[in-house]
């Protein structure tokens, strides 16, 4: 769940190496006016460091890497692994981090992103209406009132058919139109891809230049994920990272579930995040309130937040959680100490 070097290094080196993102743009903030925070001060000797409460790289705002808008497609191949949940939570995490986000629900037949975000009553127009001239693009964008820099765009209504006469060109036009908006270029365009590799998948991946592959640690999901990764690479999308969802450390410990490292060994993809199994996901889905907005935050919400952090910096995980250890308690733990 955290970006750590292997534990061979000492703690200070470890901390600094995690603070420094791997991208070279980190030291040139002027090149990226969207960067929210100034770059961290140059490294000082360890003894002069201020006290840091949580020794993580997430103690600062992330530095946006890459050209905007970054068009990221979130796909899996197999259905039900958490693509839409990932899109909603990562999208809102990015919005919380201060980046402007447009989430496109490209699941033509089975759209659900509006439900997860609690915006289903506000979707009046979709991309199909925009293409037909029934409304403008800005009328079809649904702005989230919780985080005003997050917008939702649905590609079609459940009972309407998407005209594929111009295929994925429509999404390319959409991205171009979003670039020319008066509000400015959005930092992220997240595309929630439908399951399978049908026409909807082909349409969704068309404008993307990077991909997030969501998978679960089971063999059916892994086979589909490998296939989809191959298709994405054939299409020219090279920046592919994966999120392993619904991980249970107790089952991994009992060798009933593949570990995250096993999954990574089979797929050979960089890890963007590991999301533990959490019953709060179902609750938040039914409430239309994404996990990352929960207070207090849950394990899965924290993991989504950290995945969003890495997505901004184009970073990947250096260490993963393997199993849960019993917490060491003090002498007075019986009394609540």
């Amino acid at each position: 769940m955290v970006s750590l070097q292997p534990p061979l290094t000492n703690s200070n080196t470890l901390f600094y190496s995690t603070l420094t993102p791997p991208n070279p743009f980190h030291y040139f903030p002027n090149l990226y006016p969207k960067t929210l925070n100034p770059p961290p001060p140059p490294l000082k000797p360890p003894h002069s460091l201020p006290k840091i409460q949580s020794i993580l790289q997430y103690n600062r705002k992330p530095q946006l890497a890459g050209d905007t808008p970054r068009v990221v497609v979130i796909t899996s191949g197999k259905g039900g692994v958490g693509k839409t949940t990932t899109t909603a939570n990562v999208g809102l995490s990015l919005a919380r981090l201060g980046f402007s986000v447009v989430a496109i629900d490209a699941d033509v037949g089975l759209r659900n992103l509006d439900l997860l975000l609690g915006l289903e009553n506000r979707v009046n127009y979709t991309v199909v209406e925009v293409l037909n001239g029934d409304c403008r693009l800005d009328q079809a964008l649904v702005r989230d009132k919780r985080w005003s820099n997050f917008e939702l765009l649905c590609i079609s209504k459940p009972r309407s058919k998407l005209p594929l006469g111009f295929g994925g060109k429509a999404l390319i036009w959409l991205v171009d139109a979003l670039k020319d908006r008066e509000e400015g270029v959005p930092d992220f365009i997240l595309i929630d891809c439908p399951a399978g590799i049908d026409a909807g998948f082909i349409t969704a991946i068309t404008p993307a230049n990077e991909a997030v592959l969501v998978t679960t640690p089971d063999i059916t999901s892994l086979r589909d994920a490998d296939r989809v990764t191959g298709l994405l690479e054939c299409d020219g999308i090279r920046d592919i990272k994966m999120i392993v969802n619904r991980v249970r450390t107790d089952m991994i410990k009992g060798e009933d579930m593949m570990s995250v490292l096993d999954v990574q060994e089979m797929l050979g993809l960089a890890l963007l995040g590991v999301i533990p199994e959490d019953s709060e996901v179902i609750r938040s889905t039914n409430r239309g309130y994404p996990l990352v907005l929960n207070k207090p935050p849950t394990l899965a919400g924290l993991a989504f937040e950290q995945a969003a952090w890495r997505l901004v910096e184009q970073d990947s995980m250096k260490a993963v959680m393997v199993e849960e250890e019993p917490k060491k308690r003090g002498w007075f733990s019986f009394f609540g100490g």
Binding site: P7, Q53, P296, V320
Partner: peptide, 23 residues
């Protein structure tokens, strides 16, 4: 809610301690 252990091989999240393994 997220704290790295002293040995850097563990992490505490939401009150639970997890062992870490390098990628």
């Amino acid at each position: 809610m997220v704290k790295i252990g002293k040995s850097n091989s563990t992490i505490e999240m939401c009150g639970k301690v997890f062992r870490l393994a390098p990628v």
